[in-house]
Design a binder for these strands. Structure first.
Length: 371
RNA sequence: GUGGGUAUAGCUCAGCUGGUUAGAGCGCCAGAUUGUGGCUCUGGAGGCCAAGAGUUCGAAUCUCUUUACUCACC
């Protein structure tokens, strides 16, 4: 019996969005789901207990970063990523393809793989699809991503096509190398902002998708409308029997728009990043708690929120922490922002279950939360 | 009381021998942040240059007076 299984539990009659369950060796995830990002084997400032308290079911970690530091061999000797970071629920690791694209300046891409220098010390490294699989295998996440090439928004058709085709050939090599039955490999669809390339990439990736497929190369600087167009183009062609994962998204508006377009899984650094810079998502829209307006605001960040932060602290206190550069500010706001997004996903699932996601969408779009 | 020093943005200070709309850092105010290089980036407001008088075509800058602060000595 497979250690992975995806079941659609309900399809919204209004929108076609679905609620599903994805079984993994470390537990079952209910989709649509938002996955907090823990790049370096930690969701910055939060403990695994915090994550469970805000309702996180699965977190994302990063092959590139863990390979660089402390080294995947060390994580393996520690007993794997779950044990190393004391998180016993599902983990997904990104392959490092995107990090090579976004972090490394001296990178050289060939059909064989990518040579690049470390953002930490400039040392030279090479990743091939096979090696990326070996590293992800050593880390031991439940879901592992194929090694891909993400082309930049604005890339020419020719370049986007070659990057997409290279990603497909790399996918085949990842697939052949991968053999661990405790890990599920997700292909990544590329194709930049070109509809025909997206469709070709999706179609040719599907044979390698067993229990999930990812959409990469979006939310890389293009207008949101363009991203939605690409999702609309792909939507009729997804396999029904597996979750679709939109990588690197998103903000509250993008989550709702994404689910409406058939997406089941999301990850994004945005809730924790804006938290560290003093901004919160609330039921009344984005609140820059750092602003002077909250100096003497002794009310909670979000009166409609049940998170630890909102139940115990005031905006004036949070603003003080931010201004004093106290680390508790990052922690409380991260806690709140992740809670907010996970709670938003919960509301979305409730709307799907009651076949009213379009109604939910209309109301949400007219609220200050849509941003 | 005597002698010296200093007064420029909210704070700490730059402004060379006088020359167009007086600058910086921090702070303050406001934005940004989408498969994370945590504490970043981008904007903005804010000065009768202590007060008064002189010299000069022209003064934050030179001279004098006053005031405040400060140091040393009696």
């Amino acid at each position: 019996m497979s250690k992975f299984e995806y079941k659609v539990l309900h399809t919204c009659k209004q929108s076609g969005a679905r609620i599903g369950e994805l079984k993994t060796p470390h537990g079952t995830i209910t989709t649509p789901v938002f996955m907090p990002v823990g790049t370096q084997a930690t969701v910055k400032s939060l403990t695994p207990e915090d994550l469970k308290n805000v309702g996180a079911e699965i977190i994302l970690s990063n092959t590139y970063h863990l390979y660089m530091r402390p080294g995947h061999d060390i994580v393996k000797r520690a007993g794997g990523l779950h044990k190393f970071m004391a998180w016993d629920k599902p983990i997904l690791t990104d392959s490092g393809g995107f990090q090579v694209f976004s972090l490394s300046d001296l990178r050289k891409i060939t059909d064989d793989g990518v040579s690049f220098s470390s953002h930490l010390d400039g040392s030279k490294h090479t990743f091939t699809p096979e090696y990326a699989m070996d590293v992800e295998n050593a880390l031991g996440a439940d879901i592992i991503m194929a090694f891909d090439e993400c082309s930049a928004a604005g890339a020419s058709y020719e370049y986007a096509k070659s990057a997409m085709e290279r990603t497909l050939s790399w996918l085949k090599r990842c697939y052949d190398r991968h053999s661990n039955e405790n890990q599920m490999l997700f292909p990544i669809v590329q194709g930049n902002m070109y509809a025909d390339l997206r469709l070709q990439s999706l179609k040719e990736s599907i044979p390698y998708a067993r229990c999930g497929i990812a959409i990469g190369g979006l939310s890389v600087g293009e207008p949101k409308e363009t991203m939605y167009e690409m999702l609309d183009v792909m939507r009729p062609h997804y396999p029904e029997n597996m979750p679709r994962y939109l990588m690197g998204v998103g903000s509250p508006d993008c989550l709702v728009e994404g689910v409406l377009r058939g997406i089941d899984m999301f990850d994004c650094v945005i809730p924790t990043r804006i938290a560290r810079n003093g901004t919160a998502y609330t039921s009344k829209g984005k609140v820059v708690v750092r602003n002077g307006a909250y100096k003497e605001d002794f009310t909670p960040l979000d009166e409609n929120c049940d998170c630890y932060c909102c139940k115990n602290f005031t905006k004036a206190y949070l603003r003080h922490l931010i201004n004093a550069e106290e680390i508790l500010a990052a922690r409380l706001l991260s806690l709140h922002n992740i809670y907010y997004l996970i709670n938003l996903m919960k509301k979305i699932r409730e709307a799907i279950l009651s076949d009213s996601l379009i109604d939910f969408y209309k109301e949400f779009k007219n609220s200050p939360q849509y941003q």
